[in-house]
């Protein structure tokens, strides 16, 4: 099914949502690492080199866009798939995320966790060129 070494980083400041996502992704066979703010998210991305990152936008300290920019600037993380997972949903935000190199823009309230897992798996099946 899934390579057990598939590593995913979840950057989410809401403890409960983070815990739920962690549970779900662990159950689906991912190796999950979590960060509660942007700075720690970027640091973890650089040390752990995950295959995928779920990134919230509204975060304490640097926001998701800034974190996205920093992660995308790192050549070591070139192959990492980055997904925005936020409750923002305005077209400007979607466009900004896409321009900065996010692969998908998932609105938390519009998805359930299994749909999010599916979306992530679908993208992971196609390696980033």
């Amino acid at each position: 099914m899934l390579d057990t070494e598939t590593k995913i980083l979840i950057v989410e400041d809401d403890n409960f949502l983070q815990e739920l996502a962690k549970q779900k992704f662990t159950k689906e066979g991912f190796h999950v690492v979590c960060a509660i703010d942007g700075e720690r998210g970027v640091a973890l991305a650089e040390s752990e080199l995950p295959d995928a990152i779920l990134l919230d936008i509204l975060l304490p300290g640097i926001d998701g866009f800034e974190a996205l920019k920093r992660i995308r600037a790192n050549p070591a993380l070139e192959k990492t798939h980055i997904f925005m997972l936020s409750n923002y949903s305005q077209p400007e935000e979607r466009e900004r995320a896409a321009n900065l190199g996010a692969e998908k823009f998932l609105v938390k309230a519009d998805f359930t966790l299994d749909q999010i897992v599916d979306a992530v798996k679908e993208s992971l099946a196609k390696p980033r060129s």
């Binding site: 949502l17 309230a109 359930t112």
Partner: peptide, 12 residues
């Protein structure tokens, strides 16, 4: 939306 997402996720 944030608490709503939590409710929706957990229920699912």
């Amino acid at each position: 939306r944030t608490p709503l997402s939590a409710i929706k996720w957990t229920t699912k």
